Amino acid sequence: MPSPCDRKLWDISPPVGAHSPVFPGDTPYQQQWSATITPGCPVNVSAITLSPHVGAHADAPLHYDAAGAAIGAVALEPFLGRCRVIHAIGCGPLIEWRHLAHALTDLPPRVLVRTYAKAPVQWDAQLAAYAPDTIERLAGLGVQLVGIDTASIDPADSKTLESHQVIRRRGLRVLENLVLDEVPEGDYELIALPLRLVNADASPVRAVLRALD
Results as ranks from 00 to 15, higher is better:
36 T>G: 05
36 T>Y: 11
38 T>C: 11
38 T>P: 14
38 T>H: 13
39 P>F: 11
39 P>W: 08
39 P>T: 12
41 C>H: 11
41 C>V: 14
42 P>Q: 08
42 P>S: 14
44 N>R: 14
44 N>S: 05
45 V>W: 13
46 S>R: 05
46 S>F: 06
46 S>K: 14
47 A>L: 15
47 A>Q: 11
48 I>G: 08
49 T>L: 14
49 T>Y: 11
50 L>S: 14
50 L>C: 12
51 S>N: 04
52 P>G: 09
53 H>K: 15
53 H>V: 15
53 H>I: 12
53 H>G: 13
54 V>P: 08
54 V>W: 05
54 V>A: 09
54 V>E: 02
55 G>E: 05
55 G>F: 02
56 A>C: 03
57 H>L: 03
58 A>D: 02
59 D>C: 10
62 L>C: 10
62 L>A: 15
63 H>A: 13
63 H>G: 09
63 H>V: 09
64 Y>R: 10
64 Y>C: 09
64 Y>G: 05
64 Y>T: 06
65 D>K: 02
66 A>S: 15
68 G>V: 07
70 A>T: 11
70 A>C: 10
70 A>H: 15
71 I>S: 03
72 G>K: 06
72 G>L: 04
73 A>Q: 10
75 A>C: 10
76 L>P: 01
76 L>G: 10
77 E>R: 12
77 E>G: 06
77 E>K: 13
78 P>K: 09
79 F>E: 01
80 L>G: 07
81 G>S: 09
82 R>Q: 13
82 R>W: 11
84 R>K: 05
85 V>L: 01
85 V>I: 03
86 I>R: 01
86 I>D: 01
87 H>S: 03
88 A>P: 01
88 A>I: 04
91 C>E: 03
93 P>N: 04
93 P>L: 11
94 L>W: 09
94 L>Q: 08
95 I>Y: 02
95 I>H: 03
95 I>T: 02
96 E>K: 06
96 E>F: 08
96 E>Y: 04
96 E>N: 13
97 W>L: 15
99 H>G: 00
100 L>E: 04
101 A>M: 09
101 A>E: 15
102 H>T: 10
102 H>P: 04
102 H>A: 12
104 L>Q: 13
104 L>C: 04
105 T>P: 10
106 D>T: 03
106 D>C: 07
106 D>R: 14
107 L>I: 02
107 L>Q: 05
107 L>C: 12
107 L>A: 02
108 P>L: 13
109 P>Q: 12
110 R>Q: 04
110 R>E: 05
111 V>I: 06
111 V>L: 00
111 V>E: 01
111 V>D: 01
112 L>M: 03
112 L>E: 03
113 V>S: 00
113 V>A: 03
113 V>K: 00
114 R>E: 00
115 T>S: 06
115 T>Y: 01
116 Y>Q: 06
116 Y>W: 05
117 A>V: 07
117 A>S: 13
118 K>M: 07
119 A>D: 10
120 P>A: 08
120 P>R: 05
121 V>C: 14
